[in-house]
Every structure is written in structure tokens, then in C-alpha cells.
Design a protein around this nucleic acid. Structure first.
Lengths: 134, 134
DNA sequence: GTACTTGCAAACAGTTTGCATAGGC
DNA sequence: GCCTATGCAAACTGTTTGCAAGTAC
């Protein structure tokens, strides 16, 4: 998820419409490193666009998932978080403050098969204490 | 989670009581490779112990988590699953049939720090097509 | 104008909680 | 006998759905 215009184009290319609500959510997500859950996106975007509804947030997130512009994270706090960087990378959650960070260090993952199961994707979640809390 | 008696001992050692319900749940979990969610455990155990209630299942799972005899899994189907093997290993979920398998192959994970964050644990989730569905 | 999208409320799934009763130790 | 555990129901959280009205194209 790099710039607004290319995403708007991609939405249109997929028969999805560009609405002010979707633009507001996109503006809030682009470059966002907080890995927010839907509720947090809703609360933030509502400050500037008070007409925003929570189901529109979910609707938009679904659309962005479908066109591969964001990814979902399933962390130990058991709420779905959204990452505006859909590229394969890993995640770390601080067990003290709850913060989620991107981890770009390469991990040697088997890319093909394990025990006769075909691997198509994988996720690595790290837990511990973040640099700020140490 | 190996044999019933050692777990019962561990429960008592931690001030937790041994009840018929807990024994029934333990018997169902020991050696279970299905990574069931709470609801499935409830349905299965109720067949033989019709007095079982869902909150007792959750209560017992909480107790077993607290003494480190099971672990929780957070997979792409977004329901919490339980693994009666608390030792660190990885998991694979088939995107076709939903089956979850244990992966014991070693993955080279940084054991200490990444980007100044102290790593205390990690989870690797693989997704793809399982050997049965291929 | 035709769909797709919105926003509200209501439904839903999974989990947690409150509380009177039962029962392990 | 004390105190934790049970079982029921009700509350709760996060997410999804139904639908009439609005709007991008």
C-alpha cells in the first residue's frame, strides 16, 4: 500500500467504487505503522469524518483485503489487526505495552513442502518485551 | 500433556481441584491431534458426560493454560484452538479442509533479540494444502 | 439509471461473568 | 466446613448481515 492514487485505480479496476469514506480510511492507513484493529481505525477516522460508520470500516477493510492491499494479523490479544503493508514480513508484539512492530529480518522458512503438505504462505509472530519497555 | 495422573497432581499442587468434568476433558485432550476449539471439546465430552457445561470447558482450559499443560492457537479461521502439547512447535492449517497439523521441523529462529526487542516466544503458522487434499 | 455503498440497527459467534448450588479436599 | 468448581443464564466483544436511502460511475 504505497500511494493513494494507485490504490484508487486498483479499486476501480476491480469494480469497486471510490467513496469519500474509503479515501478517508486509506489516508489514515497509508504509512500507518500501528497495526490498528477495526475499532481503532473507526475512532480515528471518525474524528475528521463524523459520518463514518463502523460497518463502512469493515466493508472497506474487506475490499482492501480482497485486492491484496492490506493484510490481517491474528495476535495474542485476539482481535484482528490490519497491516497496510501486504508484503510478506513478520510481526512482534510487546507483552508489556501491546505495541505491534514489523520485523523485516529474513527467517529461513521452507518455501515448498513440509511433511507432504504444500506450503502457500506462513506467518511468524514474535512475543516479548519491546525496546521501549526494556 | 502426557499422562492423566501427572496432570492431576499438577492441578492439586497449584491449588486447583480434580473434578469429574476436568478428568473427562483431560481424557479427551490427551493425545488429541485435532487442535479443537472450545465448542468442539464441549460437544465431544458432552456425549459421554451430559452434565458438562460450556463454561466448565472454558474454566478447565483456563486452568490448563495457567499451569502450562496446553497452548492456544490463533489461526486464520479466527477461533481459538487448543493444543494439548504445550512444547514449542509450529502449526499448519489446510486452506481447503481446515485441518490443523503439528509441524516439528526445526526453523531457525533468532532466540534472543531482534531490532532491540527481547524475544521471549514465537509462533509460526503455515497455510496451504494438506497431503490429504493434494 | 444502475449498481454498489452507506449507515443504522439488529443478529451473530465466541467468550466471559454473576451467582446460587454442589462437591473436592 | 471451607472454598473452589459447576451450570445455567445473561452480559459482553468483535464482527457480520439486512435493508432502505444515498451516490459513484
Amino acid at each position: 500500500m504505497l500511494d493513494l492514487n494507485s490504490i484508487l485505480l486498483k479499486l476501480r479496476k476491480n469494480g469497486l467504487r471510490v467513496t469519500p469514506q474509503r479515501c478517508a480510511i486509506l489516508e489514515h492507513l497509508i504509512g500507518n505503522k500501528n497495526h490498528p484493529p477495526a475499532e481503532a481505525i473507526y475512532e480515528e477516522v471518525k474524528k475528521r469524518y463524523p459520518m463514518m460508520s463502523l460497518s463502512t470500516v469493515y466493508n472497506t477493510l474487506d475490499a482492501l483485503l480482497a485486492i491484496g492491499e492490506i493484510q490481517e494479523l491474528l495476535l495474542e490479544d485476539k482481535r484482528i489487526r490490519f497491516d497496510p503493508d501486504p508484503s510478506p514480513h513478520h510481526h512482534f508484539q510487546c507483552l508489556k505495552c501491546g505495541k505491534v512492530k514489523d520485523i523485516f529480518r529474513e527467517i529461513d522458512i521452507p518455501r515448498d513442502k513440509i511433511d507432504e503438505n504444500r506450503i502457500e504462505s506462513w506467518r511468524v509472530y514474535f512475543y516479548g518485551t519491546c525496546s521501549d519497555c526494556l
